[in-house]
Amino acid sequence: MRDSDINYNNTPTVLLSLQQQLGGEILAEENTRKLILNSETVSGQIRSVELQTGIITLDIDVTVLEDIKIQIDPIESQTLHFIYCLRGGCIHQFGTSEKQILIEEFQSGIAHDYKDMQSNILVKAGKQLTINVISVYQEMYFQNTENQSNLFAKKLQKLVSYIDTEPNHLHLGNYNLKIAEQIKLLYRVEHDTEITALLSQIGRYYIILANHIDQFFLEIDNPMNTSGLLKKELKKITELSDYISANPEIQHSIKTLSMDSGLSASKLQEGFKFMFDRTVSDFIRNIRLERAEMLIKTTELNISEVVYSIGLTSRSYFCKIFKNKYNCSPKQYKSNFQKNLKLSE
């Protein structure tokens, strides 16, 4: 669905404002709106989803050829912006304030806007920028009676009470690879239908938001980098995880991964534990199982062929670990999936 066909009443104000700032064309897919950019200044896309009344997401994935300013809050209201930079680095600025704060790759920030000073993201020419912004418009969100008593709203309210003492304040967080992985999955995971894709995305946005909140309260008492790893080491861990995810069939080992990355075995384990709550071996096993599930659902490969495709040699071992994760055998899983697919047609 293109610009001329869209019901703009269902398009977040922030996306319409960004279209005025940057140009481009808005496309609609279910509850998702995308601003497609292709100009001499900026190319790429900005995706927006309204999670619920008062909570809007922005996924900004652009290449910038000239210095630009992206105003992420066009509404004059008290707003919390949970910002995470996955790639490129950017600068946060309130209104026309001289104070500018760098948000680096893998770093989070929570901006608290007041009515007179909206948040801007400044991007330098030549940057490829990928950031996620989840905005909570406080008045709209907290006036909703359904949100006044749930645990999530109480955590948000507690966070506001800490930040509210400083108008137009940015809490710059530490590096956080857990959020990075969730954002990657927003782009990477394939789904059978647009509905399952949307539900999966919404779930991940709430996981990202929960991670921001948890990190904030951890850093109040301990402002040091809770991973114990340097930025360059964190970057190597995320590069390794991407490599393993793209090549699950390779016989990865601590030794070869250490040689490829230059990290010691203990640093590898520490990094994977911090990022995924898993050891390196557990991470590899889980990636293989997720790839196997996808192959079972989307190809005609038999179970033995699936086992070979993910780098395992023992069918009995594969069936055992698959059942532990999915509560049924691979054969039963395929049968159930095909049955449900026919019912939905």
Rank of each mutant, 00 (worst) to 15 (best):
S266E: 13
S266W: 09
S266H: 10
S266K: 11
K267Q: 13
K267E: 08
K267V: 08
L268M: 11
L268T: 12
L268E: 11
Q269L: 04
Q269P: 00
E270S: 12
E270H: 10
E270K: 15
E270V: 07
E270Q: 15
E270R: 15
G271I: 11
G271F: 07
G271D: 10
G271R: 08
F272S: 01
F272M: 05
F272N: 02
F272Q: 02
F272D: 02
F272K: 00
F272A: 00
F272Y: 06
K273Q: 12
K273V: 01
K273S: 12
F274N: 14
F274I: 03
F274K: 04
M275N: 12
M275H: 11
M275T: 15
M275F: 06
M275C: 13
F276S: 08
F276C: 06
F276T: 06
D277V: 07
D277G: 05
D277C: 07
D277F: 13
R278V: 00
R278L: 15
T279G: 13
T279R: 06
T279N: 09
T279W: 01
V280A: 05
V280G: 06
V280N: 05
V280T: 13
V280M: 06
S281H: 12
S281T: 12
S281I: 02
S281C: 00
S281L: 06
S281V: 03
S281E: 15
S281P: 02
S281Y: 10
S281K: 14
D282I: 00
D282P: 01
D282F: 02
D282H: 09
D282C: 03
D282V: 02
F283I: 03
F283N: 05
I284Y: 09
I284R: 08
I284W: 10
R285Q: 15
R285F: 00
R285S: 13
R285E: 15
R285I: 04
N286S: 13
N286A: 08
N286P: 00
N286I: 03
I287R: 13
I287F: 03
I287L: 07
R288M: 06
R288N: 05
R288C: 07
R288K: 15
L289T: 01
L289P: 06
L289F: 03
L289M: 09
L289E: 02
E290C: 06
E290W: 08
E290Q: 14
E290D: 14
R291M: 06
R291I: 06
R291N: 10
R291E: 09
A292P: 05
A292G: 08
A292N: 04
A292L: 01
E293M: 12
E293Q: 14
E293R: 14
E293W: 01
E293H: 07
M294I: 02
M294Y: 14
L295K: 07
L295C: 05
